[in-house]
Nucleic acid binder design. Structure first.
Lengths: 178, 178
DNA sequence: CCGACTCTAGACAGACCTGTCTGCTATTGT
DNA sequence: ACAATAGCAGACAGGTCTGTCTAGAGTCGG
């Protein structure tokens, strides 16, 4: 189903979009670094926006798999998730949340890119609420909202190289889940 | 010292940069909406980056004045600040934090734009720490880190139209200050 | 009244952008 | 063997971007 050229395009776009932003990276550069002809690119992706959406959708699926595959149930998994997020946010090559970075470049809230971002956030919020409820926490919905907000803060702080704020956010999330 | 043309340029740039992003708004549009000739623009701002930095510096000064002029001392003012931030984040025309939005468009952490963003965040963190210390809170530094992270989360959530997350963030900040 | 200064209007260069199109080659299924 | 498919290479059009430049109009202090 997925051709090697398409996969190379998506991988290259993922790397460049995340590292340098969506608007600053042009099609020419993506096809050059992917080693793909321009006509081939436009065969697989009718427009650049399509590629951006594919990039975010793939990232969404990747995170979903990663977080849902973590061991533990209920708040135990919440703790694992935030510990992992904190480590990633301080790790090399971290440049913030791909969804938040993309949203900052697409001001129109009705744009498909923004809809993927909204989907991602709703999924994360629901995951938090389910895990909290599974451990019998009251106010699971409100706590899930706060965990989502802390997640955003971790991504921002990590992307700006503020490791002490990341540590504070992880601690707060662990307290909230405990 | 500041000419009317320069002020008009900066005001127009502030409006457009905040509403639509830095890279998507071109010089031509700014000078057209400001009613200023191109040569005049390049006389006041040698390059577009200069205008971006002036935009952020002015926003920095504006927020600094606004928050430092709020009544109350210590944690009382922290509470006022986060209540205000929460209201603004849910208000009309809110499109996220101008510093975080700009940072997302400038990946190089050494870029002058990023340095202004870092300055702003350090000021906010220091303000929080001072206010907490003034009220005799222990772990003022750690709490200030968390308040900064919550501030980031408020801006992100508000910018994405997530009012419930904003409310959760404000509640958490008030609890933290109490 | 004059020289310095600020501003307007807009042409222009050079680069870069997206997206289309034409040829050509290699592979693969029937 | 042959047709269909996938891909490569690159020219091209039409637009937008930043930044420079020319030419002239208005203003104000001395």
């Amino acid at each position: 189903m997925t051709s090697p050229a398409r996969a190379r395009l998506l991988d290259t776009a993922t790397r460049l979009f995340y590292a340098e932003g969506v608007h600053t990276v042009g099609i020419d550069r993506i096809i050059a670094e992917a080693g793909v002809a321009k006509a081939t690119f436009y065969k697989h992706f009718p427009a650049k926006d399509t590629l951006v959406i594919a990039y975010l959708a793939k990232e969404y699926a990747r995170q979903r798999e990663a977080l849902e595959a973590l061991p533990g149930t209920g708040t135990e998994r919440v703790e694992r998730i935030f510990t992992l997020l904190g480590d990633l946010s301080c790790g090399p090559g971290f440049r913030g949340c791909p969804f938040l970075n993309a949203a900052a470049e697409f001001p129109d809230p009705e744009h498909p890119v923004r809809l993927v971002v909204a989907d991602y956030r709703e999924w994360f919020r629901g995951l938090m609420r389910d895990l909290l409820e599974r451990s019998g926490r009251d106010d699971a919905a409100a706590k899930a909202d706060l965990l989502l907000l802390i997640r955003d803060g971790l991504a921002v702080s990590g992307g700006l190289g503020d490791e002490t704020a990341v540590a504070a956010g992880v601690r707060a999330a662990l307290v909230l889940a405990a």
